[in-house]
Amino acid sequence: MKPFELHNVTCQIGKKPLLEGISLSVEKSDFLGVIGPNGAGKSTLLRLLNATMKPSGGKLSLLGKDLVSASQRDILRLRRKIATVPQIMDFNLSIPLTAREVVEIARIGRNGPGRSLSPIDTAKMEESMELMGISSLANRTFRSLSGGEKQKVQMARVLAQEPDILLLDEPTSSLDMDWQERLVRLIEDIHLKNKFTVVMTTHITGHLPSRCERIVLLKQGRILFDGRFGEALTKENLEKLYDCRVDILSHSGRIHCFGIGAKE
């Protein structure tokens, strides 16, 4: 069973198409990078993949389940196996939840409604927080943490969920340079140790870890290129993707792309 398969998937809100004719599938433990400019449809693709949106057309199979015909109960079950770090999170920071309580949300969802947390849940939460190096922050309120610490709590939360698929929507976007780099290494480490399927979107090529074997370039809701890391991130492809002149620099197995002016 493939983690997900999309066949000619279309997605639109009203008459506005967000994704058109997307066909894509991954194997278990793959690391897929999705790159595209703002408005390319990256977040919409992730919303389809975490079952918070249904396609308008085509076929989408998630963990062997057809999303279009899935019942609400099936959708909830799917979401419990798919961990997401959304780009925009509506955290209500007036609520004094501790870091541990934020991590706990993953286990509450995983267990299903109305169930108490078991010692296994607690052990998994502690293990996840230890892996992320935030055990000492567990009893601090989430709102009192720095941006980087909050992102680590989020990563501990997705680890505690023990997902089959991990979706990361521009996870480095709100971090400073130091934390961006630390997070990229953290994501690499998580993938190496856990072997679950990872899909990461970004518009910064240099933030894709070297473990990302496959890249999809997305532009205006369509796949511009789908292939191996080195083949996808070429000067020619990136100039087509961003509609500007670019220069690329390869460093430590990662490819950094710079805009150097408008196309002539």
Binding site: A83, T84, G114
Partner: peptide, 23 residues
């Protein structure tokens, strides 16, 4: 008693509740 955990999570972040599979 049954749903305080869920309500607490939803109040903190509705989006997080949804993506974690809470009803």
């Amino acid at each position: 008693l049954l749903f305080h955990k869920e309500m607490k999570s939803i109040v903190f972040s509705r989006t997080l509740g949804i993506v974690c599979g809470l009803p």
